[in-house]
Design a protein around this nucleic acid. Structure first.
Lengths: 231, 231
DNA sequence: AACGAAACGAGAGCACCGCTCTTGATTACG
DNA sequence: CGTAATCAAGAGCGGTGCTCTCGTTTCGTT
């Protein structure tokens, strides 16, 4: 029942969105390092000090963009999972991986914002940790369905890793075997290793047909978490 | 025979090194974003304009630091390989991985400089590509010795990846089978995915015992390139 | 309907930044 | 020895993030 209070509140929402949009535009054009509050304000026809009514600092603006970026890549992953709901787990896994990569390639600067060097300070704000988990949750869910269904095939867990594996499993998916949980975390980070190397240019003049390369690498990642190939 | 020309040339070398050292100090303290030429000059007791005699721009200073960082992590990897020359390939592989990770954890900002978001522009300068390859070369060498010795066990290559795999093999290690070359590139990027997630804080409150977690992940990476466990 | 509080845009200003240009001193080389 | 190159220093330009003040406008409350 509580609709938007009035013209002022409505304007605030719109202006906040306009600032983020313009900031995203500059981010895509020049990268996070060259994102300037003054330039954003200038482009929006306001004075720079007015912008501080909406974001207390440049880092807070960046944090908002980070949250949006996590949500965007998370939504892309969830969409890929939904689109492949009827397919086999390994196919869904690779589809999600491909969606993450496609989003990253399409938005390299936003990707760099969330999976590159942390730019504001050392510790990420609390607001970012929930959106940051979305891609991981999608991967966990696909693997869980495989585990509940046709099962997963995993190598045994080294003895010295068992306590940590049980801790991880309790943390991210208590219903899953520890060996699967730890394999998931490893595959999760390795997926972003593949994507980062491509987006950040480390594959320059090494990998050319990156679509195919990534496809088989993602597939192997899926097998590493126990997903079974064909029938 | 051509020794250092005179006091001037000697001073230039020393001052250049002092600038880089001070820049590295500030890098470790505050990160690349807050590295300031003026602050470096101030700390060295000179005026900021004098610093431009040694580095044409801030980005050139950063590039020098990037080259040094690649060399440092490359040297760490080579050292680990040398220290384990008598051991089995899989043990050497994990030792090199551990060395890379240890260096990264000890020098997070320098690591972010080379394996995080590219900060200066889009394209890395030519000077950086040779040092950037050092870690990869170490991994290739270890795998090559395994291949020449006890052999490696690899899953077959998908048909659609064969052309690209042969291209990659011709590029990085013509004497190695294409399936091995492509597995190496994938493992290489996935190794840095593991390290990046730890250094950049993505494992926060997910992985706690990171030593053992990384050890088994690195070991599995070695098996992914066909390295054989025990005897 | 009127009032006080809160939010707002605009402007000036602070300290800092990367970088350029000029000046004068020091060193190196033909 | 003298000329040319190299150097540190200073002033200055346009830019940045951010703060503070000042009128104005909107809002919630009486």
């Amino acid at each position: 029942m509580t609709t938007v209070r009035g013209a002022r509140a409505r304007a605030r929402i719109e202006i906040t969105a306009a600032i983020k949009d313009e900031a995203r535009t500059q981010l895509a054009a020049e990268g996070a390092a060259k994102l300037s509050l003054r330039a954003v304000a200038r482009e929006l026809g306001m004075v720079s000090s007015a912008l501080y009514r909406y974001f207390p600092s440049r880092d807070d603006l960046l944090t908002a963009l980070i949250v949006d970026a996590y949500d965007a890549v998370g939504a892309a992953a969830e969409q890929a999972a939904a689109d492949t709901a009827a397919q086999r787990p390994l196919a869904r896994w690779t589809a999600v991986c491909r969606a993450v990569r496609a989003w990253a390639v399409a938005h390299p600067h936003e990707y760099a914002l969330i999976y590159g060097s942390p730019v504001p300070g050392y510790t990420a704000p609390q607001d970012t940790i929930a959106p940051a988990a979305r891609v991981g949750l999608v991967l966990i869910d696909i693997t869980r369905r495989a585990h509940d269904g046709e099962g997963v095939a995993l190598p045994p867990l080294p003895d010295d890793l068992r306590p940590e594996a049980e801790r991880i499993a309790a943390d991210i998916a208590p219903d899953l075997p520890p060996a699967l949980a730890v394999a998931l975390v490893a595959a999760w980070s390795q997926l972003f290793g593949l994507v980062s190397f491509e987006v950040f240019g480390q594959f320059h003049r090494v990998v050319e047909d990156r679509d195919t390369f990534f496809a088989t690498a993602a597939r192997r990642l899926g097998q590493d978490v126990g997903l079974l190939p064909r029938g």
